[in-house]
Write a protein that binds this DNA or RNA. Structure first.
Lengths: 142, 142
DNA sequence: ATAAAGTACCTTGCATAACAAAGTACCTTA
DNA sequence: TAAGGTACTTTGTTATGCAAGGTACTTTAT
């Protein structure tokens, strides 16, 4: 396990959520989705996206229709079903809660760092006083 | 695939990140971690946590020492290695970027909903005018 | 003593999912 | 008609979450 792996893991869970969001705004096909995900700096490849779309279709969250293209093979344009819309609302909640949970834990760490830092400053007779703008220690990090 | 599955997926990626954060604040053993994760409403079971700790240890991000307990079997107290600390900093960045990416996509959907809604209102001759505080449509959702 | 309950850590087997890579098929252009 | 582009699909590998069951140590109740 390396750090890149962990970063990949972190992105994994939210993919489905993002896909549903993108489709919720109107009919799109796979390349449209890849474009938008890329522009949001979420890197996804075809081998991930297509099976995911198939799973969501089989789960009844998506539907699609074939549309002829003027420049290439026909495309599968996806839309959300009613179930897909309901699920997306639920996932909106889940995302909010998840972000809250993580920020709670990260915030607690920053709080801890701050306390430790103040303790060290109190013991440090050579301390020049306040040290504003130290990385990771400002109140806005909470 | 059901909606619960998607919610589980969403939580998956951030587990490692949260564990590293908790350990970064000082020596803890598994039950301490489970308590904190639970209080942050992140549900994890032993069968998930122990293998994860072993993986992080083998990857060189964690170290541990056995400590006798006054009320039960000995405990493994974990600490971060230097590599673990470096990795945590990288994951802090990753989390920030991920949250930004997701909020970008969710925000775009809310923007879209707003436009669609305004369009419908403009066509709706029976419209009583502004409809403040409609769910999911306020500016603060962005 | 000894059984029962509590605590802590570990392992096995299964299901899911991301991804790389290779494949199929259709369309346009040279 | 061959080459290149676009779009969708499939296969095999790997990682991982988790349920369930296991080992081992300690305390408490009988």
């Amino acid at each position: 396990m390396n750090i890149e792996n962990a970063q990949v893991q972190m992105r994994k869970g939210i993919l489905e959520f993002c896909i549903l969001h993108i489709i919720s705004r109107g009919e799109v096909y796979a390349s449209d989705m890849l474009d938008e995900l890329t522009s949001a700096r979420i890197m996804v490849v075809e081998g991930t996206l297509y099976p995911l779309l198939t799973r969501l279709k089989n789960a009844g969250l998506l539907d699609y229709k074939w549309v002829e293209s003027t420049s290439g093979p026909p495309r599968k344009y996806y839309i959300l079903t009613d179930l897909g819309r309901t699920s997306l609302n639920a996932l909106d909640e889940t995302w909010k809660e998840l972000a809250e949970s993580v920020n709670l834990i990260v915030g607690k760490t920053n709080q801890h760092r701050k306390v430790v830092n103040e303790h060290h400053e109190a013991l440090d007779v050579d301390s020049p006083g306040n040290r504003p703008n130290q990385p990771g220690l400002s109140a806005t990090d909470l």
